[in-house]
């Protein structure tokens, strides 16, 4: 009894709203926010879902069924066919050839472009010389020039160098067109390193390369990863340079994929096409899902370019 009276006196002292404000589980605003996000998510997820389910059906099921419905019977045959049997022109050894071509293009291109861009960015941030900023600004503006205008002269240059139609030529082209964004990325990163560190190293007698290798490199691992993400996805996804500067035997995966899917000969095998498409998208997708925040950082770095 005393307890009850005690409560009433406490209530009498604190009238009106007290304590946490009661919340409604579903407010109108929340309904709108989550509703919109979920509907939009469907739009973004749908193609991935369709790719996956189509690639796991056999052709009979594809023909009669609904493209959104999950496979009644899962088959990996389309994947096998896409990888090792699908035809482009006279070759029928599947996408695997394109995959390995892309790998062979990717590794030297990424290494070369990152090496060149990191050294350029380092020079631009710490060892400015008369005119270095001018070249850098031209480089940045160059990023906005449509590639089409440079396509043919580069063909001539590569032919003169004896690199036309070869892996080396394509690697060089990837290095060139990867330069603006990656140089900017490295320049901005190295500029954010305190100038005094650079001065201290100079007092300690370190020169251009010693400061780069001993001081700067060890502290810029994250930016190398960001740059690598940009380059790996960019080069893997390239279509135009691959088709212009290489020849069918060394076409990268994207070009080969397009040739397989859009070839006019034979019966369209949609399940194989989707398996091939997924296979081609797999490398950048894996990188995207693994790198997470760093991928976003690479994008933000790209945005600074503007």
């Amino acid at each position: 009894m005393t307890r009850v009276s005690h409560l009433t006196t406490a209530d009498a002292q604190l009238q009106g709203p007290k304590g946490p404000k009661p919340k409604r589980a579903f407010s109108g605003a929340n309904l709108f926010i989550y509703g919109t996000l979920i509907v939009m998510s469907l739009y973004y997820l749908l193609p991935l879902w369709v790719m996956i389910v189509t690639s796991l059906k056999d052709m009979a099921e594809v023909r009669m069924g609904n493209i959104f419905s999950p496979p009644a019977e899962i088959t990996f045959q389309p994947w096998v066919k896409a990888w090792s049997e699908a035809c482009t022109g006279i070759n029928c050894d599947g996408l695997s050839r394109g995959f390995w071509n892309s790998v062979r293009i990717l590794i030297p291109s990424v290494l070369l472009s990152i090496t060149v861009a990191s050294v350029s960015g380092y020079g631009l941030s710490m060892w400015k010389f008369k005119g270095s900023e001018v070249f850098f600004n031209i480089l940045l503006l160059g990023a906005f020039i449509p590639y089409q205008i440079m396509l043919y002269p580069i063909v001539i240059i590569l032919r003169e160098l004896g690199l036309m139609g070869s892996l080396g030529g394509l690697v060089l082209v990837h290095m060139i067109f990867g330069m603006p964004i990656n140089t900017l990325l490295f320049r901005n990163y190295f500029s954010s390193i305190p100038q005094e560190l650079f001065k201290a190293a100079r007092v300690d007698g370190a020169g251009f390369w010693a400061i780069f290798f001993k001081i700067m490199l060890p502290m810029s691992l994250p930016i190398f990863v960001v740059s690598m993400i940009i380059q790996v996805t960019g080069i893997w996804n390239d279509f135009l340079f691959g088709v212009v500067y290489t020849k069918p035997a060394i076409y990268p995966m994207t070009v080969q994929l397009n040739n397989i899917v859009n070839s006019v000969q034979g019966v369209k095998e949609y399940n194989v096409n989707m398996a091939a498409t997924l296979l081609t998208g797999l490398v950048p997708l894996v990188i995207y899902f693994i790198s997470g925040k760093l991928f976003v950082r690479g994008i933000a770095a790209g945005a600074v370019k503007g």
Binding site: P194, E196, L197, K199, A200, A201, R202, V203, D204, G205, A206, K214, I215, P218, M219
Partner: peptide
Amino acid sequence: PSDRGIGMVFQSYALYPQMTVRGNLTF
């Protein structure tokens, strides 16, 4: 700078972050 017979101490310390103290002193 390294040939001038000077030593310099900076406001932000400017220590090489990836080296130990010994590494900083001996660089």
